[in-house]
Design a protein around this nucleic acid. Structure first.
Length: 350
DNA sequence: CGAGTTTGACCAGCGC
DNA sequence: GCGCTGGTCAAACTCG
């Protein structure tokens, strides 16, 4: 690309080149040769050429970015259509596929059913994040730039006050922290027989009388998935963000977990999308703007019915997936490396 | 010093 | 009844 050069400068330069306006041509003492002016002009021209190159590159990158965005949108639409189709197929073909787990009666059976449900969820839905509520299933996920936990899967047993949340997390992160809006105090940790990863035990510490307990353990199948099992219901309102912040900041150790889940899920925000640092709570029981809110037991609207609201779901999913994919791409080392190589290659070519 | 975490010990349910 | 296992307790420890 040709840099923007002023007409007068060009004229002078052209004259210099063809000799018509060479300062050397005329030895008139009144027009003495000014060497410094010549260097200034050359520098100016070179700078303007660089600016022009940069502008061109920016334009080119913008065009590429636009193309990528369009591709992403198309991918999202296809994904969305496929997912809706898959859901319809599931609903039509196998009404018995989604079996309700038997009420968790005693110890030890809980984990097996939980893990099994997780496996069923994972296998039934493949890539998508998953939320299961009673007999219905929806999916959600989040890429958080500040945290490695990305996904949430929730399974709630309507017959008991137990629910399971699956959160994607960095396998190297041994803290077993599932942020969900409530305050938790760890009171024990144990290695279980069927899972080499330790299981952490938490109690709700926001209210002393709150009976809610939480167990967090990595999935056997996928070490990057944290399985959080919640038992009981909170007998207090969800701590506000300020409460959580102050209590967390105020604590000497500053390591209190705050989170919630289905029976224990925090519902402090009116926003449809609540992300508490690492997790996102998705609830399609609300329409339009209030697409997301934590699934509480009292909100038992069938999610199947919500799938009929395809416009709402589509809009949300599209936006959501665009963000997720963009984030995934930007986080993908190979993608960023390829992008960097392409950009640097262009620079080198220039 | 105080609040939260760690971790070994203890308790209780379950299967044989 | 015994052993295994998960869940809980509490003293010791850690950290700001």
């Amino acid at each position: 690309m040709v840099g923007r050069v002023g007409r007068s400068d060009l004229g002078i330069l052209m004259g210099m080149i063809d000799g018509s306006e060479s300062p050397l041509k005329d030895h008139d003492p009144k027009k003495e040769f000014d060497q410094s002016n010549f260097t200034d002009l050359a520098l100016k021209l070179s700078t303007e050429q660089q600016v022009g190159d940069l502008v061109e590159k920016i334009n080119r990158v913008s065009v590429e970015n636009k193309k990528l965005s369009e591709m992403l949108t198309v991918m999202c639409e296809n994904y969305n259509a496929l997912q809706i189709r898959l859901i319809d197929l599931k609903r039509n073909n196998s009404p018995n596929n989604i079996k309700e787990a038997s009420p968790i009666s005693k110890k030890r059976k809980t984990d097996q059913s939980d893990e099994q449900s997780h496996n069923n969820i994972s296998s039934s839905n493949g890539e998508g994040d998953h939320y299961q509520h009673g007999n219905s299933e929806i999916s959600s996920s989040e890429e958080n730039a500040n945290n490695n936990k990305k996904q949430i899967r929730i399974r709630e047993d309507p017959n008991s006050k137990t629910s399971v949340m699956y959160v994607h997390s960095d396998p190297s992160d041994s803290r077993l922290i599932v942020k969900d809006g409530y305050l938790w105090r760890k009171y024990g940790q144990k290695v279980t027989r069927d899972n080499p990863s330790p299981r952490a035990y938490f109690k709700c510490s926001f209210a002393p009388s709150c009976p809610v307990k939480k167990k967090v353990q990595r999935s056997v199948k996928d070490q990057s998935v944290l399985v959080a099992t919640y038992e009981g219901e909170h007998n207090h309102p969800c701590p506000s963000e300020a409460d959580v912040d102050t209590s967390t900041m105020g604590s000497k150790r500053g390591a209190v977990q705050h989170g919630s889940s289905s029976g224990a899920m925090c519902n402090s925000s009116s926003s449809p999308i609540r992300s508490s640092g690492s997790t996102i709570i998705l609830d399609l029981t609300q329409n339009s703007a209030a697409l997301l809110k934590p699934p509480r037991p009292e909100v038992e609207t069938s999610l199947k019915n919500n799938y009929n609201n395809k416009n709402v779901k589509s809009a949300f999913l599209q936006h959501f997936l665009v963000e997720q994919m963009a984030s995934s791409l930007s986080k993908d080392p190979s993608f960023t490396a390829a992008l960097a190589a392409a950009i640097s290659g262009n620079f080198l070519q220039k």
